[in-house]
C-alpha cells in the first residue's frame, strides 16, 4: 500500500457549527507532517473522517488510495492514536493490545514485542486504570504500531506528557518517518513539533491555511535578519539604527537587526567601537514562523 493520506474537499456541519469547510491536503511518506491549528480548527474531525469514524457531508478521505472502511485488517494499513484515555480501566495494558492484535489476526508475540519497544513491559500486566498519562501515551503508541502500518495518525500525542515523554515521542516519530512511513501528527502547540515535523499543514476554521515545508517556512520567517549579541545593546542599537537598520530587542543581550547584511553589521559596530560577542544569521523558531504565517488570520491568532 502506498503510504499516503489524501483529504479532499471535506465539509461537515454539526448543527449550526461548520467543523470542516473544504479541508484538502495530502500527506506524503518519509516525513512527519504536522497538522496544526488552534483548538476547533477541524484537526480532530478531519482525523476522525480519515479513519472512517465520522462521515463527511461532502468530500472524501483516502488512506493509501482507499477509504478506511474498506480496509481489511485496517491496523496493518493505518495506525492511529486518538485518545490515550480510551481504555477499559479493569483490563491490563497487555490485554488491551492483545484484543487489538487478535482483531487483526496477530498474536501475543507481536504484543510483547511492542511492549518492549515502547518500554511498557514492566507495567504490562497491571490494570490500565492505574497508568499515568505517560504510560497511557506509550500504550497508545504501541497500539498504533501493532500492525506495523505504513501510515500513522496521532491526534495531540504530546498532551499531558512529561518532558521526557515528549522527547521520546519526537524521536520515535522521526525514526518512523525515516523508515518511509507517512506520519501525521496534530498539535495545537507549535513548539511541540519543533525539530520533528518536516512539513506543516496549518488548519484554521475547517480549511487549510498553509501547506508548507518547515525549512521553507522558517527561512521565510527569518527574512535574512541578523542576531547581534552584545553587552552594550543600547549603544549597538543606536549605532545600527543610525545606519538605517531596523532593530528589535531580543532575548538576553541580543538584538535582531533587519536591513543590512551581517558583514555590514560587523563593520558598523566595529567603526562605532561597540563591543559584541556574536553576530549571526537569525533563525526564527517554528512557533514564531507559525505566528508570522497566521498573524493576518483572525481565526488562528490566540
Amino acid at each position: 500500500m502506498e503510504a499516503t493520506i489524501e483529504v479532499s474537499g471535506l465539509r461537515k456541519r454539526y448543527g449550526r457549527t461548520t467543523a470542516l469547510d473544504g479541508m484538502t491536503f495530502r500527506v506524503r511518506p518519509g516525513r512527519v507532517t504536522g497538522f496544526v491549528g488552534p483548538n476547533g480548527a477541524g484537526k480532530s474531525t478531519t482525523m476522525r473522517v480519515v479513519l472512517g469514524l465520522d462521515a463527511p457531508d461532502e468530500g472524501h478521505a483516502l488512506v493509501g488510495g482507499r477509504p478506511y472502511r474498506s480496509l481489511r485488517r485496517p491496523l496493518t494499513h493505518v495506525g492511529a492514536l486518538l485518545d490515550v484515555g480510551a481504555l477499559q480501566p479493569g483490563r491490563s495494558g497487555r490485554d488491551h493490545l492483545l484484543w487489538l492484535a487478535h482483531s487483526q489476526g496477530l498474536g501475543a508475540r507481536r504484543v510483547d514485542e511492542l511492549l518492549d519497544l515502547v518500554g511498557l513491559a514492566p507495567a504490562a500486566r497491571r490494570r490500565a486504570g492505574g497508568y499515568s498519562l505517560g504510560m497511557r501515551g506509550r500504550l497508545g503508541i504501541a497500539a498504533a504500531l501493532l500492525g506495523d502500518p505504513p501510515v500513522l495518525m496521532l491526534d495531540e500525542p504530546f498532551n499531558g506528557l512529561d518532558p521526557e515523554g515528549i522527547v521520546w515521542i519526537r524521536g520515535f516519530l522521526r525514526s518512523l518517518a525515516a523508515e518511509g512511513r507517512a506520519v501525521l501528527v496534530s498539535s495545537h502547540l507549535m513548539s511541540e513539533l519543533q525539530d520533528t515535523a518536516g512539513h506543516l499543514v496549518v488548519a484554521g476554521r475547517g480549511r487549510v491555511v498553509a501547506d508548507v515545508g518547515v525549512d521553507e517556512l522558517i527561512a521565510t520567517a527569518s527574512r535574512a535578519r541578523v542576531t547581534v549579541r552584545t553587552a552594550a545593546s543600547p549603544e549597538a542599537a543606536r549605532a545600527l539604527a543610525g545606519a538605517g537598520a531596523t532593530v528589535t530587542v531580543g532575548e538576553r543581550d541580543t538584538l535582531v537587526v533587519s536591513g543590512p547584511p551581517a558583514e555590514d553589521v560587523v563593520r558598523l559596530l566595529g567603526a562605532c567601537g561597540v563591543p559584541f560577542s556574536e553576530v549571526s544569521a537569525y533563525r526564527a523558531t517554528l512557533e514564531e514562523a507559525y505566528l508570522d504565517l497566521t498573524g493576518g488570520f483572525s481565526g488562528v491568532v490566540r
Binding site: 479513519l51 469514524l53 472502511r69 485496517p74 493505518v78 492511529a80 484515555g85 480510551a86 487483526q104 497500539a143
Partner: peptide, 13 residues
C-alpha cells in the same frame, strides 16, 4: 471512555 473508536478502527464494518 470512547473505547468504541478503538474498536471501530480495528473493525470498521
Amino acid at each position: 471512555r470512547g473505547l468504541i473508536r478503538t474498536t471501530l478502527l480495528a473493525g470498521p464494518r
